[in-house]
Simulated assay, not measured.
Amino acid sequence: MDLIDVCPESAEVTLTDFRAYQTVILDPEGDAQIDPNWVVLNQGMEIVQTMNSDPGLAVGYTAFNGVDFEGTFHVNTVTDDDYAGFIFGYQDSSSFYVVMWKQTEQTYWQSVPFRAMAQPALQLKAVKSRTGPGEFLRNALWHSGDTAGEVTLLWKDPRNVGWKDKTSYRWQLSHRPQVGYIRVRLYEGMDLVADSGVVTDTTMRGGRLGVFCFSQENIIWSNLRYRCNDTVPEDFKTHRKQFLHIQTNS
Rank of each mutant, 00 (worst) to 15 (best):
V151H: 03
A121N: 15
Y61V: 14
P113K: 01
I25W: 09
V211Y: 11
F212G: 02
A63W: 10
P233I: 03
K156R: 15
Q242P: 00
H143Q: 03
S53F: 01
T104M: 10
T107G: 05
Q110W: 12
F88H: 09
Q178T: 11
V199W: 07
S168T: 10
Q178A: 11
T248H: 10
R130G: 04
R138N: 04
K166T: 05
S111T: 11
H143K: 03
V184G: 03
G206N: 11
C228L: 06
P120T: 11
M100T: 15
F69A: 00
I182P: 03
G210S: 05
R240M: 14
T231R: 07
K156Q: 15
H74R: 05
P133W: 05
N249R: 12
S196E: 08
F212I: 07
L124D: 10
L15C: 11
F86Q: 01
Q172G: 04
D165C: 09
E188R: 08
D27E: 12
A20N: 14
Q91N: 06
V13Y: 04
P233K: 06
T248C: 09
M1L: 12
P158N: 08
Y181G: 06
D2V: 15
F136T: 06
D235E: 09
C228E: 07
M51T: 12
T238V: 06
N52P: 01
E135Q: 04
E217P: 11
L122D: 13
D68N: 12
H74S: 05
K128R: 12
R183F: 01
R205I: 08
G44W: 07
L141Y: 10
G207F: 00
L141I: 02
T203S: 15
R138D: 02
Y169D: 10
F243M: 15
G149D: 03
W163T: 03
I246D: 13
L41G: 11
I182M: 11
I87F: 10
R183V: 00
M190Y: 10
G180S: 09
S95K: 13
L244K: 10
R19I: 02
T16D: 05
G44C: 08
L209W: 04
K125I: 02
V99N: 10
D201A: 13
Y169N: 09
F86V: 00
D157E: 08
S95L: 06
I4C: 14
F243S: 15
S168W: 05
R176Y: 09
D165V: 05
A20P: 02
A58K: 04
T202R: 15
F214H: 09
H74L: 09
R185W: 02
F86W: 11
N160T: 13
H245S: 13
F64S: 00
C213F: 10
S94A: 14
G162V: 11
R130Y: 05
A116D: 06
I87T: 14
Y226N: 03
V24H: 09
K102N: 13
Y97T: 00
V179W: 13
P158E: 07
A20T: 14
L122W: 14
D82G: 09
Y83F: 15
W38P: 01
I34R: 12
